[in-house]
């Protein structure tokens, strides 16, 4: 279908494309800058001013310092444990709730939904939550990061909607063969809902990977710190000192800068690498959520 565009529309289309290119540049350039700066020679980058379009010199010293740093590596290991453990707990709990509440005949189903929806509007807030974790004896243990967010109510509702849309006829024959609800959930409903479950895995996992605030509040022991908390010390509190013990005093400041950039790259790399392959699933999830509303 051809449709003749007016001059004004052509000018607008041109501006629009330019704007989009500018937006993409503004989004990507910070990462490009950090990547190039992290690969640069520390002394050269320290005296460099302005935008960066290629690494200044080349050096992997910063990456070496990051990888040899015990805090970063412990943080990485802890984060992986929290991501895997936390996401498994999330999935288990969310699926249980979503399945049970998606069944047509359950007593008090609507009351239970109300109990859940209320928590989306009201919460006890920071201090009572902190005291609860303290009273449960979970302060300074990994459980403080894994259990309090075990179910995201919004995700539970999305998953329940997906389960409800599966035709009842599919499970009826299984029920005649004597299958119980647990079998129906694990053998029929879950395999048929893999797209939505993939979205849940991604959302929960990224959430765990990126979260730092709960760790900041609940953890004291540095051996338990997730990567984001280590990052906070390096990026915000400027404490690259303990990484530079090997460097001569004159280079200390310089390499500090590239260490910062290298830490950002090392900690963000998994997301940057996986992102292009996964983004359609992320978006898929938002669409499900949007249709629900």
């Amino acid at each position: 279908m051809t449709y003749k565009r007016s001059t004004g529309e052509k000018v607008f289309a041109c501006f629009n494309v330019c704007f989009m290119i500018l937006l993409c540049f503004a989004t990507l350039y910070p990462f490009i800058y950090i990547l190039f700066a992290s690969l640069s020679n520390p002394a050269e980058i320290a005296s460099y001013r302005g935008l960066l379009f290629l690494p200044q010199g080349f050096s992997l010293d910063a990456y070496k310092a990051v990888i040899e740093n015990p805090m970063v590596m412990t943080g990485y290991r802890n984060t992986l444990l929290y991501v895997v453990g936390g996401t498994l707990i999330n999935l288990f709990m969310t699926t249980l709730g979503a399945y049970a509440l998606s069944r047509p005949h359950v007593y008090f189903k609507n009351h239970i939904m109300l109990v859940i929806v209320i928590t989306m509007v009201f919460s006890g807030g920071l201090i009572p939550s902190f005291l609860l974790i303290n009273n449960l004896g979970m302060l300074n243990t990994p459980w403080a990061l894994l259990l309090p967010g075990a179910i995201n109510s919004f995700n539970l509702i999305i998953m329940r909607t997906a389960f409800q849309s599966i035709p009842v006829s599919l499970e009826e024959s299984a029920r005649i063969d004597g299958a119980n609800d647990w079998t129906i959930m694990t053998r029929i409903i879950i395999p048929l809902s893999m797209p939505v479950i993939a979205v849940m895995i991604l959302w929960y996992a990224v959430g765990h990977w990126n979260s730092y605030f709960n760790a900041l509040i609940y953890l004291r022991d540095r051996e338990l710190f997730p990567l984001q908390l280590v990052l906070r010390e390096i990026l915000i509190s400027n404490s690259t000192d303990n990484m530079m013990t090997g460097a001569a005093t004159g280079d200390r400041m310089d390499i500090g800068i590239t260490i910062k950039y290298a830490t950002i790259i090392v900690s963000t790399l998994p997301i940057l690498v996986l992102y292009p392959f996964l983004q359609k699933y992320f978006v898929h999830g938002v669409m499900i959520g949007a249709l629900k509303e």
Partner: peptide, 12 residues
């Protein structure tokens, strides 16, 4: 490209 920053942690 425009969705990407959403997945970067606020610490970064």
């Amino acid at each position: 490209i425009s969705y990407l920053p959403h997945f970067i942690s606020i610490v970064v």
